[in-house]
């Protein structure tokens, strides 16, 4: 599904990603862990097409296509979803309108008719129920005035609506209390199927108790320095990142 070879990226002469390799197959759940500043968020941003990164280099293939050739919205429509660490507020734009535009763009891409208002509302209702979401959220402007937890739940809700092939969840667990964390994890698990892959970017092992990864990778100084199964996450939780740092040095 996703193959990353020797990915490099920098910001203002500072190298953030320094030759990262990763291979994600359909149906797999990968966790990427690492200390602050190791390049975790940059990875999500670069994959989803955010501008402002210099010296992009390497190869990224997504569903058989060169990802770098695609604009951000085209990557999205092909099925790449980024759950933002800090979802931006868009004042005055109702969540419903935003999401309807988004869902219909995805449908148009797949050659499907746009959903009518009632069909769309029905779909929204189903997904909300599935995720046990408060229905008020969709009446407000995109992320405006949402609490940290609401913003994260809103990201998962959008993911459920758009049914991506590959979801990258950037620190979706940060700032969540245990209940919100469960809702987020349940959502991710409910959407799991053999066709869909997930990359969970996280700082803590906590989320991985609920979303069980097939692989755990440690990102450090812009490279994956260690990979393993879910037990690696536990080891990290116990020992911290220092031993990895030492090993790398």
């Amino acid at each position: 599904m996703l193959t990353i070879k020797n990915l490099k990226a920098s910001v203002e002469d500072k190298e953030i990603l320094r030759g990262l390799n990763l291979d994600v197959k359909a149906g797999e759940v990968h966790a990427i862990m690492g200390p602050n500043g190791s390049g975790k968020s940059t990875l999500g941003n670069v994959l989803s097409g955010k501008e402002g990164y210099d010296d992009l280099d390497g190869e990224v293939e997504f569903l058989g296509e060169d990802l770098f050739e695609l604009a951000a919205e085209d990557r999205a429509k092909k099925g790449l979803f980024l759950g933002f660490q800090y979802p931006v507020e868009i004042p005055g734009v109702p969540m419903v309108n935003f999401l309807k535009a988004s869902v219909n763009e995805h449908r148009k891409f797949k050659g499907l008719e746009p959903l009518s208002a009632s069909e769309f509302l029905k779909l929204m209702r189903e997904k909300k129920e599935m995720l046990h979401l408060d229905s008020q959220l969709t009446n407000r402007s995109v992320n405006e005035g949402f609490s940290g937890g609401e913003k994260k739940k809103n990201e998962i809700f959008q993911m459920a609506m758009l049914e991506p092939k590959l979801a990258i969840l950037d620190e979706t667990d940060s700032g969540l209390d245990i209940d919100a964390l469960k809702i987020v994890a349940d959502g991710v698990n409910a959407l799991k199927n053999p066709e869909r892959s997930t990359i969970v970017i996280t700082h803590y092992q906590r989320l991985l108790e609920y979303i069980v990864p097939d692989f755990v990778h440690v990102l450090y100084q812009g490279q994956i320095v260690k990979s393993g199964g879910k037990e690696l996450a536990l080891e990290l939780e116990e020992k911290g990142y220092d031993w990895i740092k030492k090993e790398t040095v």
Binding site: G49, E51, A71, R75, A76, F81, E105, V142
Partner: peptide, 12 residues
């Protein structure tokens, strides 16, 4: 960042 957020959801 708002434009990028929309792009990421498939909106031109």
């Amino acid at each position: 960042d708002q434009i990028f957020y929309c792009n990421q959801r498939g909106i031109s």
